[in-house]
Design a protein around this nucleic acid. Structure first.
Lengths: 125, 125
DNA sequence: CAGAATCCTGTGCGATACTG
DNA sequence: CAGTATCGCACAGGATTCTG
């Protein structure tokens, strides 16, 4: 083991409220549920942009995310909004303007993104 | 912005090798590719177990991961092995024994898991 | 501009049965 | 014990068209 064993133990302890009947899947933080929040092909991309590059309009996102269709972007934005990860602000203008931005809940994912990024640079960059 | 802006700037700088033609998706670390490595319904679950709970045999994993089928577990383990995230050690015994463990590459994801876990506890725990 | 509404397709995922 | 081998479906993901 190269990583800090104490930190690992602490995490395992934190997560094991009941010792006996629960599966490992439950005692650790439940990845399937996390996958629902940030899984899929686009959610991490959208979050990354909104977290690190600030508020964007719909078509700004669309242009920045190569390969995504309008429908998919709409879907992902709706899902993210439902999960409280992004906020949607509509301006009563003509032409209509809608701005998307990361909520605090999403902002707090930035540390995770940083770790993910360091890891990526180390092994795939 | 609540989070540390300097760190954010540093990350953006780190990732932008070419400024001009590349999409944001490419200038930041490419989430679609990361999703290929650790995405899907089971990979994070398997990795979490192997990283934080050490080496496991096939059926040990199977028992710990509620709801997974043999076929799926095999698939995910093969994929993870191909990506260099887990190692597979076969013992020439009867009955056969195969042990799976996290590689260093996977071990280095533990910080990301920790951040993910802190976030989960804060918002969903 | 920012979508809604359709329709369509690939494949992620799973159930089941069989094997060295 | 630790797998393969099939089969099949639901659903994520996508192309296209229409609208306030």
């Amino acid at each position: 083991m190269v990583f800090n064993t104490n930190r690992v133990k602490r995490i395992i302890t934190m997560t094991s409220k009941k010792e006996s009947t629960q599966s490992t899947e439950e005692r650790l933080c439940p990845m399937p549920q996390i996958a629902k929040l940030i899984g899929g092909k686009w959610k991490l991309v959208v979050l990354q942009i909104l977290i690190f590059h600030g508020t964007h309009r719909f078509n700004e996102l669309r242009r920045k995310i190569e390969g995504i269709t309008q429908a998919m972007l709409t879907n992902q934005l709706r899902a993210l909004e439902e999960d409280g990860l992004i906020s949607r602000k509509i301006y009563a203008e003509v032409p209509p303007r809608v701005e998307y931005s990361a909520t605090q809940k999403a902002m707090d994912l930035n540390e995770m993104f940083e770790e993910m990024h360091r890891w990526w640079v180390k092994y795939e960059g």
